[in-house]
Design a protein around this nucleic acid. Structure first.
Lengths: 217, 217
DNA sequence: ACGGACTTACTGACAAGTTAGTAAGTCGTG
DNA sequence: CACGACTTACTAACTTGTCAGTAAGTCCGT
């Protein structure tokens, strides 16, 4: 086990700060890995394929990240960091603003198939046994649900109970993810329109209250 | 290439009908494969693991199915056939009946985690490059969308345009699939309630017509 | 400003494991 | 007794990870 950047090896030596070229290289690798894992999945995407994209050997990749699993973890962290930077300043919105933001995002995603596929593949794979991204995906869902449920309650101005907001929040996330998969498999699915329609419908139903317009049971 | 059951080997011999024990054996293998592919995914689930479950070697499995990909295909066909048998007589319903049926199914699925995981894993994996189940999944979505869109229009009694029904149909399927994934990762998601709530909301919005209660753009 | 001491970023070869698929032979049964 | 259902034995291709070696960079004392 030798670490490229971090902690003291074993002797009491100081790690020395990484130079500029190194952090750029590592980012190149992270982007390549995101690309490979996104199209082939984590388990079937190989280190060799990642390495090839940046013109080194798979051993070179391992030099930087130590293991394939560690590479995945850093890919996920990198993505989180990027997301945060994209929202720099423009703090994550609440209330109706949040739903507008979601719709804009979906509309943008319709032109970034690679990103969408990467997300869908990883999410799907995460429900397999002992998948290393499981915790990350699960956590991401939890946070998202919280934010959306909060926004639903804001829009409902206190008349929407928390439990109902929770139902609506998970449904909204579900419809977004589920539609992405259908769209990836079949272009005839209108991703942005269908998503927007469903979000509005769910939001409206939540705000209108629990009484069901169509008794289904 | 030698086939277990079908075509003539090379000599002009007649294929001979398979004995009872054989077809049962093949079904055992199919169930085992569905199990393995469902929990580990197709690509990472191994023939050896499938074989072990029925007490033979991986070569034995290949004797019956010829290749791993063929095994997957027959698993999918087997599932289709089972689904059809489950609806024996009780032809697939339309109109409001269909939505009641969907809700019952989801409620039942909440007690059949294995089945749900199998479906989710395979669906997610199918969006990866050149996945052998891609066509099957895509086709399944197409058929489902058609059925649901038809039911939406029935409920709308001719007042719902086809394009709107299509949006609603893909959204309903999306929310069902997306919620399953969230539920698999986190039990705190109320799968049946959230699904039912969203279906009703989307259906109501579709029937109420296109004018959006909350202008989001 | 220079030269040794040390680190970093790799490569190429290899280890050790897993994989699907093949070929040949064995055995029981209809 | 022939054939179907296997097993055993094996191959070829990949997999991740380790290791030693090397070229290039950085740091520091003089």
């Amino acid at each position: 086990m030798d670490d490229a950047v971090p902690s003291t090896p074993a002797t009491g030596r100081t790690p020395r700060k990484p130079r500029q070229a190194t952090v750029e290289r590592r980012q190149e690798i992270l982007r390549a890995a995101a690309n490979t894992f996104g199209s082939k999945g984590y388990k079937t995407g190989s280190l060799a394929e990642v390495a090839e994209q940046v013109g080194i050997t798979h051993a070179g990749v391992l030099h930087h990240f130590g293991s394939k699993e560690q590479l995945l973890i850093e890919v996920l962290e990198y993505r989180d960091k990027e997301d945060v930077e994209n929202l720099e300043g423009k703090h994550i919105p609440g209330g109706l603003e949040l739903f507008r933001h979601l719709e804009r995002t979906v509309r943008a995603n319709a032109h970034r198939r690679g990103i969408v596929q990467g997300y869908s593949v990883l999410t799907g794979e995460s429900v397999t046994e002992n998948h290393p991204a499981r915790g990350w995906v699960r956590n991401r869902f939890t946070i998202l649900r919280g934010e959306i449920a909060g926004a639903v309650m804001e829009v409902g101005e206190g008349r929407v109970p928390e439990s109902l907001a929770a139902l609506a929040a998970s449904a909204i996330i579900g419809v977004m993810d589920g539609l992405q998969v259908q769209w990836l498999l079949d272009d005839s699915v209108d991703l942005p329109e269908s998503t927007a329609f469903a979000i509005e419908a769910i939001l409206a139903a939540a705000v209108a209250g629990s009484p069901r317009p169509y008794p289904l049971d």
